[in-house]
């Protein structure tokens, strides 16, 4: 078979986004060609995208083979599991205290849980740890201060690298160095307005 699996997925992705866009665009007034409403341009754009998606999809049957990377069984099961776990964490976040009543803090918790759960499978581990590291930064920054947020980010991101897991002392050294550098650049020099230490506000 000459099927290009990457192009099949690409075409499907373009079609899916275009269809969603067209559906959402029903809320917007199209207007006329003379006085175009807010929905006119989105309509044009999504129809063009739909057409392109279909072309990509059609051509995928002739210009392969180009298979997707193999998913292990764990990769395939952990993806939906992590999405469910993340959604549950997001939905029930307000239970864990008033901090999570804020929309973005709840969202952040959901994303963090989702990304950490998906790390259980090897295929998603790097993506999961790197994204989780940025999520924990946002969760900790405003209440916990820059230093704590950075330390947690570096700690989680280090999990993505096997060499770091073997030698935690190196991570500690790196953390201290980066904390000092960020303090000097962003606090001392640039004066960005964030809490530096926990419970500063």
């Amino acid at each position: 078979m000459k099927i290009n699996a990457k192009d099949v997925a690409s075409g499907a992705l373009l079609i899916l986004i275009a269809a969603t866009g067209l559906w959402l665009n029903q809320d917007h007034n199209l207007g006329s060609a003379r006085r175009m409403g807010p929905g006119y341009m989105p309509m044009l754009v999504f129809y063009v995208q739909l057409a392109l998606g279909m072309i990509v999809l059609a051509m995928a049957f002739f210009n392969g083979p180009d298979p997707l990377e193999k998913w292990t069984k764990a990769d395939a099961t952990m993806l939906p599991v992590s999405i469910i776990a993340g959604t549950l964490a997001w939905y029930f976040a307000p239970v864990f205290g008033s901090f999570f009543e804020n929309t973005y803090n709840a969202l952040g918790l959901g994303m963090l849980v989702g990304f950490l759960v998906v790390c259980y499978s090897m295929g998603w581990r790097l993506l999961g740890f790197i994204c989780a590291a940025m999520c924990i930064f946002s969760l900790l920054l405003e209440k916990g201060g820059l230093m704590l947020a950075l330390a947690a980010t570096i700690g989680i991101s280090a999990l993505a690298e096997p060499e770091h897991r073997a030698r935690p002392l190196g991570v500690l050294g790196l953390t201290i160095f980066l904390l000092a550098m960020c303090w000097w650049i962003f606090i001392k020099q640039l004066d960005i307005r964030v809490a530096v230490w926990p419970l500063q506000y």
Partner: peptide, 18 residues
């Protein structure tokens, strides 16, 4: 846009808690 001298915020920190 929201850059404020942070030393000033630090100074107020203690008072703010009390």
């Amino acid at each position: 846009s929201g850059l404020l001298p942070r030393r000033a915020w630090l100074a107020g920190g203690a008072a703010m808690a009390a």
